[in-house]
Design a protein around this nucleic acid. Structure first.
Lengths: 110, 110
DNA sequence: ACAAGCTATCTTGCATAACAAGATAATACA
DNA sequence: TGTATTATCTTGTTATGCAAGATAGCTTGT
């Protein structure tokens, strides 16, 4: 899948994945592929910087969990501001997709 | 509309606009806004480099038209390779959009 | 005990492409 | 004469996804 198409959509994807429950980065990588039925894929080197951006913006909050056995995990949960941002980004995406589809559907038209 | 969302889609939009007839750059700027019902907007400083990329790839071909009165216009028409590329880009876009929608629709799910 | 592989987070540097801003030039109009 | 419009083109900036690698602890096989 083209790298360029993903630009600007990963934050929307992350916030969506965090709406039902908190998740950690490594888990999100797999969830994206699963939820999109293999259509979308995001590398961890991409994911972590996006998580930091969202945290800086106050849209998500981290919580370290260090189990007695296993590697520590950093869980993120969405904030109130994050839910508002999610609505905004989702609306923006739908507006954009509608505009593009309108053009695609009109090929051969006036 | 977010700059990042547009990334990778302008070539698709241009090739689509050139399917029914040849057009020149300045005309395309207005057509994009009109065809998308005001949802999409592309500056001419963005458009021309994209046209050059498409021309270099053999997807479109230019033709200068110098009228007796008025500024010269550079008309572009789509080639056979351009039509194939359009099909490829459109399929890629729909695959990507389907993957993203699948994630958006599943919020609160498993 | 040792190696290999898995889980998990994080960092650096690169490539791409949309855009703002401005340049150029001819025409139209007041 | 001056301002606005049509039309193309260039330069520099900026954002961000990704490859590649580092780190570290755990698990599994031989």
């Amino acid at each position: 899948m083209s790298r360029e198409l993903k630009r600007g959509t990963i934050e929307l994807v992350l916030l969506t994945l965090l709406t039902d429950r908190e998740r950690y980065g490594y888990e999100i990588v797999a969830a994206i592929e699963e939820w999109s039925a293999g259509r979308l894929e995001v590398r961890d080197g991409t994911l972590y910087p996006v998580l930091y951006r969202l945290e800086e913006g106050g849209f998500i909050e981290p919580r370290w969990e260090t189990p007695e056995r296993g590697v520590p995990r950093k869980y993120y949960r969405i904030t109130g501001a994050g839910k508002a941002e999610l609505d905004r980004l989702a609306a923006e995406w739908r507006e954009f997709a509608a505009g593009l589809e309108a053009i695609l559907d009109r090929k051969g038209g006036a």
